[in-house]
């Protein structure tokens, strides 16, 4: 074919195909006809049989074959089983005076999802957006003194982090290596740390946690309520006092414009464009006077 005719090839093809369509009695749907639902028959639309596999795809596939899942391992390739040893605060021994089986006597398990009106009314089921019920995942109705895993294996309350780690495995990895959570120390319940220094009693210095030696960490449930695990807002401690003779700065307005929000040099001339930009932060920032 001559080179100057090459751009016309698609048009020629369209004309030829259209002619063939007309010759074969094809109708255009919509002009008073029943729409042809069978238009999407397999033969008319080409189905891509196999995805294209170029060299990179094959290499990637082979590379990923011998590779562990990254997110469950540290950068050094340690799994949570290889974490440094640690201890957790115990929970099971506190249950001996009032075990769950006092009431849950295993004779009858009411598995119906319902609003709790008699007991455990304080529980708010917000875990997972409220999609769990007691006996779905965590509790076994027949053995309430222990928790239960997905594979229906009992889990002691002292090892409840294993239960949490079934879904939150990545957070569990952080926790066993020390990147999440807190070591046991002077304050048994992290939520109840007093707000002001006058109320702080850190006199018992033996209770302060250690950074070396034995690692004793808080369990998941000492910070997160298992039934409603999102951390609730706190009341903040008082702000620092403003130095005598000065007023606290006014609450900041909008933050200074981002570099990508600043208008560039416009046609009106550089000084005219720069002046409002330089004044914008100055209007909000100093504000040394209380409004």
């Amino acid at each position: 074919m001559r080179p100057h005719l090459q751009p016309l090839v698609p048009f020629a093809l369209i004309v030829l195909l259209g002619g063939a369509w007309g010759l074969l009695g094809g109708k255009v749907p919509g002009d008073g006809m029943v729409p042809r639902l069978q238009a999407a028959e397999p033969t008319s639309t080409p189905v891509r049989a196999t995805p294209p596999r170029n060299k990179d795809d094959i290499e990637l596939e082979q590379m990923m074959k011998g590779r562990k899942a990254i997110r469950a391992f540290t950068v050094r390739g340690q799994s949570i089983a290889e974490a440094p040893p640690f201890k957790v605060e115990t929970r099971q021994d506190k249950m001996q005076f009032y075990p769950c089986t006092n009431c849950h006597d295993n004779q009858f398990v009411d598995r119906r999802v319902r609003k709790l009106t008699e007991e455990h009314r304080e529980l708010v089921f917000e875990h997972g957006g409220g999609r769990f019920w007691c006996y779905d995942v965590c509790h076994n109705g027949r053995d309430m003194n222990r928790l239960i895993s997905y594979r229906r294996q009992p889990i002691s309350y002292d090892e409840s982090y294993k239960l949490c780690g079934q879904c939150h495995f990545e957070r569990q990895k952080d926790w066993v290596f020390g990147g999440h959570g807190k070591r046991l120390g002077a304050f048994a319940v992290p939520r109840n740390i007093p707000e002001k220094y006058e109320e702080l009693k850190v006199a018992d210095r033996q209770a302060i946690g250690t950074w070396q030696g034995e690692r004793v960490v808080h369990m998941c449930a000492s910070c997160h309520n298992p039934h409603s695990p999102a951390i609730k807002p706190y009341t903040p401690s008082p702000p620092p006092r403003v130095r005598l003779g000065l007023a606290p700065p006014a609450t900041r307005g909008a933050p200074a414009p981002k570099p990508w929000q600043k208008p560039g040099p416009s046609k009106g001339g550089a000084p005219a464009a720069i002046t409002p930009v330089s004044k914008a932060p100055a209007a909000g920032a100093p504000a040394g006077v209380k409004p």
Binding site: F187, P190, I193, L200, V202, R205, I208, T210, C223
Partner: peptide, 10 residues
């Protein structure tokens, strides 16, 4: 021992 700020962080 651990610093006081770490101990008190809830």
């Amino acid at each position: 021992r651990l610093p006081a700020c770490l101990e008190a962080c809830p």
